[in-house]
Write a protein that binds this DNA or RNA. Sequence first.
DNA 1: CCTACCGATCGGTAGG
DNA 2: CCTACCGATCGGTAGG
Lengths: 226, 226
Amino acid sequence: MSTPRSDPPPVPATQALDAPAARLRGRPRKALDARDDGNRRQLIIQSAARLFRAQGFDATSTRDIAAAADMRSGSPFYHFESKNALLHAVVEEGLQRAVARQQQVLQQLPLQAPPQERLAALVRHHFEILFGADGDFIPVMLYEWRSLTPPQRASIARIKADYEAPWMPVLQALHAAGALKADPALARMFIMGALNWSVQWYRPEGRLSLDALAAQALDLFIGPPT
Amino acid sequence: MSTPRSDPPPVPATQALDAPAARLRGRPRKALDARDDGNRRQLIIQSAARLFRAQGFDATSTRDIAAAADMRSGSPFYHFESKNALLHAVVEEGLQRAVARQQQVLQQLPLQAPPQERLAALVRHHFEILFGADGDFIPVMLYEWRSLTPPQRASIARIKADYEAPWMPVLQALHAAGALKADPALARMFIMGALNWSVQWYRPEGRLSLDALAAQALDLFIGPPT
DNA sequence: CCTACCGATCGGTAGG
DNA sequence: CCTACCGATCGGTAGG
C-alpha cells in the first residue's frame, strides 16, 4: 500500500523489457519538431522561465520543469548541471535579449532626438520587456535574484550594467535641462524600481495599455511632453 | 553509519529517562526572561521575520526558526498551525504596526500642513518602515506575497488598504495644485513601487541617510520644496 | 535522454 | 514545549 519510491511509469507500461522486436512499439516518440534539434535545451529554458515566474524558483521542482518540457524527471540534468544553473541560464538569456533589443530601440531614434524622447523609448521598451511576448525572463531575475549564487550574481550583474548604462546620459541631460529634479543616479534607481514594481500590479489584459502606462510614468518623472 | 533519522540530541545526553530525582539536573532551563511569559509566540514571530527576510520563506525551515527562538524542531507548531500561518502572522503584525505608526505620524502634522509636507511625512515614514528598527516585517510582505494562501492574501489586503488610503487625498491635492503631473491613482502605484524597490539596493549603513533618500524621492515626484 | 534509485531535508504530528 | 518519528518530496546520479 506504500507509495512508489520511483517516478511513475510512462503512459503505456505493458512490456518492461526492451526486446529488439518491440522497439518500434515502445514509448511514443516525441513530436518530430521537438526531436533531433539542438533546441531541447531551449525548450527547458522556456519552460523553466514560465514556471519560475508563475510559482517561484523554490516552489518549482525540476520534475515540474521536465514535465513541462515533455521529458522524464532526470533529463533536465543532461542539459544543466543543477537547478541553479538552469535559473542562471534563464536570467542570462533574458537579460542578453533585453540588452540587444534595447540597443535596437535606441538606434531607431533620430540622431537629434531630445532626452525626453529617449527616456520615453527606454521606458516603453522596459515595459515591453516586462509584459511582452517572452516576458517571463526578466521578472524571474527581479524575483529570484536572491536564489542566484554569488558568482552567478556577479555574472548577471555585468550584463545588467550593460542594460542600465544607456539610461544615465539621458537622465543627466534631463537633469541639466531642468526636467528631472532629482539626482540622476538616484533617479535611475527610483525610476527602475517604479517600473519593475509594476509586475506586482499591472495586468496587460486590463484596460490600461502599455503605451498609456508608459505615458503616465513619464508624466510622473519629468512631466507631460511639451 | 547512516545519518540519524531524528533530531540531534540536546547538548547533555546522559540520562534518557526522566527519573523524578533527576528532574533538576535535566536539560538546562531557558533564560528566565524568556520563560513563563506569554511572549514565546512573539519570539517565534520575531525570529521568523528575520529569517524570512534574510533567506526567503521557502529557504527557511521551521527548524531554523525553532533554533533561532531557542526551541526544538517541533515546538513552533505548538504556537502556529503551519509554517504558512506563521508567515501570515509575521506579515499581519508588521502591517498593523505600520498602520498604527503612520496614523501617529499624520496626526503630528499641523492641521494646515500643505500636501507637499504630508507626502514628505508619508514617504519618510515609509522608509522608516522598510529600514527602521523592526524593518523585517514589511519586506517579508513585499517579497513573500506569493507564498501567502489566497485567504491569507485577502486578510492582509484589507490592512494594506488601510495603510494606503491616506496617500490618495494627498496625491489628489498635489495633482490639483499642479505639483503632481500623473494620474493620482497610477502615481500612487509608481511611487510606492519606487519606494518599495529600494529594499533591493539601499543600504542604511551607507553614506546616504534616510532623510536624504526621502528628499530625493520627493524631488523626483513633485520637485524640490518651495 | 530514460530508468531506477539514493540520501537528505522538510513540514508536521502523537503522546507525554 | 520536547521526544521521536512519519510520509512525502526533492535535487541529483549511475548506468545504459
